[in-house]
């Protein structure tokens, strides 16, 4: 066999790879997205807008947004905190903590939902106590928030841990010697260094919090207009043969997802612009 020193792939290989990946992306991502919008608008704009005059739909949107508004900041904060803790310090139980962080990934969302029933349901660990004080967690909004918090937690932490490990602690130590307080170090040194990893983690958290179905469906109780998030309500609409409405709501969710991606691009632009503004005029 003659050994050829191939420096670049031949054109046909490149074309083939391109076509295969293009086809894959098209079929599994572009086509479904386009279908959602097509089905949503199939009967015209009037029918599409009618969906959003349904009070059940509006309450589902509000509940989903409320859940995201609570879960994303909390998980971001604790994600950063835990990533910091795990990469900068050594302590007994560290490895256990790392495994626990991955728990929401490894168990099925339905099981995650059941966990909350086992904790807060009337026969759960806290059941009797909760009933006595008439505190409602499962089958009410707090349960939905908790379940969503659980399943969307790992993203920020897992994005940041390898990043922070690689960055090391030199920068932070330098800032320490220059007299910076803990908060100043975090805000001016650590945060800018991790910002892209953090942003990506936030986007993933947001996506999961908005789109979660399994865990939420278990703790929800499906009380329409009260404990139905957008994904749950889409399921309801579909089950009632209201396909236009189901796809209309789905198109809204898709749109929200696109908005987060656009927000990321805007942020990139903004940060680059900030760089420019730091320039100092040198006097000759």
């Amino acid at each position: 066999m003659v050994k050829k020193r191939v420096v670049h792939e031949p054109l046909w290989v490149k074309t083939l790879l391109f076509l295969i990946s293009g086809a894959f992306l098209f079929v599994f991502i572009v086509l479904p997205l386009v279908t959602i919008f097509r089905e949503a608008f199939k009967s015209g704009i009037a029918v599409y807008m009618e969906t959003f005059s349904d009070p059940g739909v509006m309450s589902a949107i509000k509940l989903s947004l409320l859940t995201v508004l609570i879960c994303v900041p909390i998980n971001t904060f604790f994600g950063v905190f835990i990533a910091w803790l795990l990469t900068k310090y050594r302590f007994p139980g560290r490895k256990v903590l790392i495994t626990i962080i991955d728990l929401p990934f490894s168990i099925s969302p339905v099981i995650a939902g059941l966990l909350f029933i086992f904790l807060f349901g009337s026969f759960g660990w806290f059941g009797a106590w909760l009933m006595e004080y008439d505190i409602r967690i499962v089958f009410a909004v707090p349960g939905i928030v908790l379940a969503t918090l659980f399943v969307s937690f790992p993203f920020v932490a897992r994005e940041l841990m390898p990043l922070m490990r690689e960055l090391g602690k030199d920068d932070e130590e330098a800032a320490l010697t220059l007299g910076a307080s803990g908060f100043q170090i975090f805000w001016k040194v650590t945060l800018p260094n991790i910002k892209w990893g953090l942003l990506y983690g936030i986007i993933l958290t947001n996506a999961r919090a908005l789109g979660e179905f399994g865990a939420v469906s278990v703790v929800s109780g499906f009380v329409r207009g009260v404990t139905t998030t957008m994904p749950l309500y889409i399921d309801i609409l579909y089950g009632e043969y209201m396909f236009r409405a189901a796809f209309a709501l789905a198109s809204l969710m898709t749109f929200l997802a696109l908005v987060t991606i656009i927000a990321k691009a805007v942020l990139e632009y903004y940060i680059a612009a900030q760089r420019k503004s730091m320039e100092v005029k040198i006097q000759s």
């Binding site: 920068d171 130590e173 330098a174 220059l178 007299g179 307080s181 001016k188 260094n193 760089r275 730091m278």
Partner: peptide, 18 residues
């Protein structure tokens, strides 16, 4: 251990600014 998101001026000024 220079702060990679700050330019030379900002790096040197850091200890004074904080």
């Amino acid at each position: 251990a220079l702060f990679r998101h700050m330019n030379v001026f900002e790096n040197i000024a850091f200890g004074l600014r904080i």
